[in-house]
């Protein structure tokens, strides 16, 4: 049974549609991400779940209870804001204790729970620090502890890691996931960072222009994107123009000088999509797209090649395994497995 349920939720600001007809059910203990570019409606959705905005259509239910008319103060949700929104005039411990105080938790129990919360986020000994005297990562941890100490039904994270530098962000991702697994709080994360969404969530909701494009596990959304938007937003994708020719007895997919047996489905002009890391080089005469390497960029653990192929530009990513790699200007053949290739008719869905 779903724990948090969005039922055909919509939000309009005058003429502008921010979120339209959004349905989503989140299971208890699940970590779900709303992923999309800015202006896709993900933050609006979060604000509606939190109760800071009222939906103009549809309903939101939590554990069978309709939240739509419940005031934000009574929803019992924990929220971590992008700016952390810590109370600057209170110490870390006072910040964390605030929610408990509002719930009338007696002082003795409050102290114990604040101490536990601080320990959980690895900030023991920082109880009496003021937020301004803490680093961004520490402030973030206080914000997380403050949201979790009230034992919320749902934890809402609004781009919580976007203000941290890259290294710290990675560490916090792992830690955030660990904490969420340990305490099992249902979590909704809003982010525009696809790696963050993939690293953290059980399921990803990819949004665009106020609508859901795809819901699925990180692996599903990456490997089987439901739309061109998803395939471009999650990672990089090469696109080649090709054609499916169906004749009596055989069907061929042709791109440039190579051809594959065509799968059942579209015919006529098609777009072939392949992830850059699925493409390999073949110097032999195999069934590959002919290309010339225009640019070779070394990125530590992998190489990035920009190629000019007979079917248009392409990028190729190769693990740095220590093997010799083709040089700039070299002529190569790009090959990939047939099952790593996506096909959709030109101007249509896959």
């Amino acid at each position: 049974m779903s724990f948090l349920e969005l039922n055909r939720v919509g939000k309009r600001f005058g003429e502008h549609v921010a979120v339209e007809d959004m349905s989503l059910s989140v299971a208890k203990g699940e970590f779900i991400s709303l992923l999309g570019p800015s202006g896709c409606g993900k933050t609006t959705t979060l604000q509606m779940i939190a109760g800071f905005m009222d939906p103009t259509a549809g309903s939101i239910c939590l554990n069978g209870r309709d939240l739509t008319s419940v005031k934000p103060a009574k929803r019992g949700l924990g929220i971590v804001f992008q700016s952390y929104a810590l109370f600057p005039h209170m110490t870390a411990a006072e910040n964390i204790a605030f929610g408990l105080e509002m719930r009338g938790v007696p002082r003795a129990e409050r102290d114990v729970r604040v101490r536990e919360a601080l320990a959980m986020v690895g900030l023991d000994g920082y109880a009496d620090r003021y937020p301004r005297r803490m680093s961004g990562g520490q402030q973030q941890r206080v914000a997380l502890a403050r949201a979790l100490v009230i034992k919320p039904d749902v934890l809402l994270l609004d781009e919580p890691l976007s203000n941290l530098d890259a290294k710290l962000r990675e560490d916090m991702q792992i830690e955030l996931r660990q904490i969420q697994r340990n305490i099992g709080t249902t979590t909704v994360l809003v982010t525009h960072d696809q790696t963050e969404a993939m690293a953290l969530s059980d399921r990803i909701v990819v949004m665009s222009k106020g609508r859901i494009e795809q819901i699925g596990t990180p692996h599903e959304t990456y490997e089987r994107p439901a739309s061109p938007f998803v395939s471009h937003f999650l990672g990089k994708t090469n696109e080649f123009q090709g054609e499916v020719i169906r004749r009596a007895g055989e069907a061929l997919l042709v791109a440039g000088s190579c051809q594959w047996p065509a799968p059942v489905g579209p015919s006529g002009p098609v777009t072939i999509t392949v992830r850059p890391e699925k493409v390999g080089f073949d110097s032999g005469s195999g069934n590959g797209v002919k290309a010339r390497i225009t640019n070779r960029i070394f990125q530590g653990n992998h190489w990035l090649f920009q190629c000019e192929t007979e079917c248009g530009p392409a990028i190729v990513v190769r693990q740095n395994t220590g093997e010799a790699q083709p040089a700039e200007g070299e002529n190569v053949c790009l090959v990939w497995r047939a099952e790593d290739m996506g096909i959709r008719s030109v101007g249509g869905a896959s």
Binding site: A50, F52, A73, K74, I79, L86, F87, F98, M102, R146
Partner: peptide, 8 residues
Amino acid sequence: NAALSLGA
């Protein structure tokens, strides 16, 4: 909003 979500 932060204070509101904490029940104030």
